[in-house]
Design a protein around this nucleic acid. Structure first.
Lengths: 199, 199
DNA sequence: TGACAGAAGTTACCGCCGGTAACACACTGG
DNA sequence: CCAGTGTGTTACCGGCGGTAACTTCTGTCA
């Protein structure tokens, strides 16, 4: 039916990248509840091929996330190691994150909001991303403060906390938008800077 | 089979509380992926009764969450309004949260970690809890700092950020446990207190 | 050129899920 | 005695993630 003479429907192999493109389109359109059938249809193929490529749904989602995670981690590391004041580094790192959030909320929700969850395996593997963010930030903080190794756990606690802070504030801000991105960056940097203690 | 003469299997009505008890047992045992069938079986009944009581899975989960949310919110409000130093209030609020996390990780994951998610309706309604935490904290901060109304959004940004901070730090800490609860409380209170800026 | 290995892709199925329709049984009040 | 109401059941629906088994195409090498 779908494959009449007028629609040759390519028999050749799809590349992994093409499949991921299709999957991304569907996920960004339907949210993380996107079904494997829908993704396969979007890619112009059927389910078993997806499973041959990615193993299971978790594998597909991880592959999807990996395309963006490295980019973002790199931007954060750049922000964290740039020259200038510590405050500038703080703001640059937060802003790198908020730009992603503002520019593509659907992608953000997919990446960090572990939207799918159903299967524990998916939750765990996607949660890894948040952990990697935290570890990257912990390294940045330890370097920033020149902390000796015994104090690393403290830096880790702070780092994972800060990642969660920016993430939760992003969620709230996406819904409410009471001010622009730059203002949120400032407010969060203020908080990390100890503005609450001084207020 | 399961209902032989030796097991009369009660024909009388189950109360809503009994059903919630059973649901809670299953959710804490199997995680948020617990199926309605499993919950019904645990309660000694069958699915349609659950649906008569709670409408759908989201309804059951909300009812389940509501049993604990008010308690926790009350504890937080108490901590936020107690007398003493600001630092003491900060630590008391964080510690109230961490006690729940440490005392019943499974319940914590269910409440805050929006584990289920599959259906958007469930996600949204469960996410409401985190929002309420944030709003309660925002009120506390606005009161603490005697902020005029125009500055409330700033307090909200901080509050929702801090809620996320404590939550993310809890997640990490539950897995790693590099120090005890009191130390985590101190570290997080330090961060809010501006220790990073002073370091 | 042609037989063939193997990748690419399909159909058809499995068990389970959330959710519902339709029916069976007890208990009460008129 | 019987209707009505609430409690429970069985049996089903469509759709999900995932898989087995088969077909069809394509490139390779004698």
């Amino acid at each position: 039916m779908a494959t009449t003479a007028s629609a040759p429907a390519r028999r050749g192999p799809r590349t992994r990248a093409e499949l991921l493109d299709a999957a991304e389109r569907v996920v960004l359109r339907d949210g993380p509840a996107a079904s494997m059938n829908a993704i396969a249809a979007e890619a112009g193929i059927t389910k078993p091929i997806l499973y041959r490529h990615f193993g299971d749904k978790a594998g597909l989602y991880v592959a999807l996330a990996d395309r963006h995670i490295e980019t973002l981690l790199e931007r954060l590391r750049t922000a964290l190691t740039q020259s200038g004041t510590r405050r500038a580094r703080t703001e640059a790192a937060i802003d790198a994150w908020l730009r992603l959030v503002e520019g593509n909320p659907a992608l953000y929700r997919f990446l960090i909001h572990r939207g799918q969850a159903e299967e524990p395996q998916v939750r765990d593997r996607v949660a890894v991303f948040q952990r990697r963010l935290g570890e990257a930030l912990a390294a940045g903080i330890a370097a920033e403060l020149a902390l000796p190794e015994p104090q690393w756990p403290r830096a880790q606690a702070w780092a994972h906390g800060i990642v969660g802070m920016v993430q939760a504030a992003s969620d709230w801000w996406l819904d409410e938008q009471p001010f622009d991105r730059a203002a949120l960056t400032r407010h969060l940097a203020d908080l990390i800077d100890g503005a609450y203690a001084r207020a």
